[in-house]
């Protein structure tokens, strides 16, 4: 209680940091409603750029691709990731530590390196580029997150529950279906949402694996920025950022960022 003035100062500081973190995004959102093309102030409020956006086939096509890639990535990564998490929890085996350590590179190596390596290998091996190549890459990036999130949930699982179900005559499949999976559900959902967010916001990997005419939203936005962008980019960016922040707030209902608080 004695430290009141210091505490107040701390709160003001925290507020300033939040201003730093959010102001650019808010400015962009405000400008997406400004009908002036040269960002004149005061803002002339209108939905012009959103209307224009609705007729921009390139961006809409890219948005559809983004959602498609993210959905497929989510399904594959959450199924494969959950299976691996169950194995890590249920069994002790010699290579467990190695396999767990192998999840580190996709997260830790700069995406520039993984992205260019994928471009080179996929092109050379005949896998090629395009949406299927992006899905290959996105799943690899999303898998570690799914495994980490699902494993965090699985840790609290009591194996006696499975044993009890078995002793009551449940088949192995029934045990998984009626005991293990329902318990895992929140972790599974959080992992799936994470996978979706990782894929939907992924730019670097998609950028190197895109072919002209087949790209995702971030790639299309980057191309537009480099070319000298149009204010429609503000509009689509605002939609994307609102969408991904909403998604993450939902994830936070299922998963505590940064462990127990």
């Amino acid at each position: 209680m004695k430290a009141r003035p210091v505490n107040l100062l701390g709160r003001v500081y925290l507020g300033l940091v939040l201003v730093f973190l959010y102001v650019p995004i808010l400015v962009m959102a405000a400008m997406s409603f400004n009908s002036s093309q040269f960002y004149m102030l005061p803002i002339d409020w209108s939905f012009d750029w959103y209307v224009k956006l609705a007729h921009n086939d390139r961006l809409l096509e890219a948005a559809r691709n983004s959602i498609l890639v993210a959905l497929v990535t989510t399904v594959i990564a959450s199924v494969l990731g959950t299976a691996a998490s169950i194995a890590f929890f249920r069994y002790d085996f010699r290579f467990k530590k190695v396999l767990q350590a192998a999840l580190f590179p996709p997260i830790a190596i700069p995406w520039l390196i993984t992205g260019t390596a994928m471009l080179l290998f996929f092109f050379w091996s005949g896998i090629g580029r395009g949406l299927h190549a992006m899905i290959l890459g996105h799943v690899a990036l999303a898998l570690p997150y799914v495994i980490i999130v699902v494993s965090a949930r699985i840790k609290g699982f009591d194996p006696d529950l499975e044993a009890a179900a078995r002793s009551l005559g449940a088949s192995p499949w029934q045990v998984i279906r009626h005991v293990t999976l329902p318990y895992l559900a929140p972790g599974f959902i959080a992992g799936a949402l994470f996978a979706f967010a990782v894929s939907f916001d992924q730019f670097v990997i998609s950028y190197f694996l895109s072919v002209p005419g087949v790209s995702t939203l971030p790639v299309e936005i980057y191309t537009a920025i480099k070319k000298g962008f149009t204010p429609e980019i503000n509009a689509i960016s605002t939609i994307v950022i609102v969408f991904s922040i909403t998604l993450l707030v939902i994830v936070s209902r299922f998963y505590r960022f940064g462990g127990d608080r």
């Binding site: 995004i25 730019f203 971030p218 991904s244 993450l248 960022f257």
Partner: peptide, 20 residues
Amino acid sequence: LMVIIPFWSNALIRVFSWTM
């Protein structure tokens, strides 16, 4: 949560917003 969430949102767009 407010501090962490921008980190998980689109990096490209956050960089782009600084141009404005």
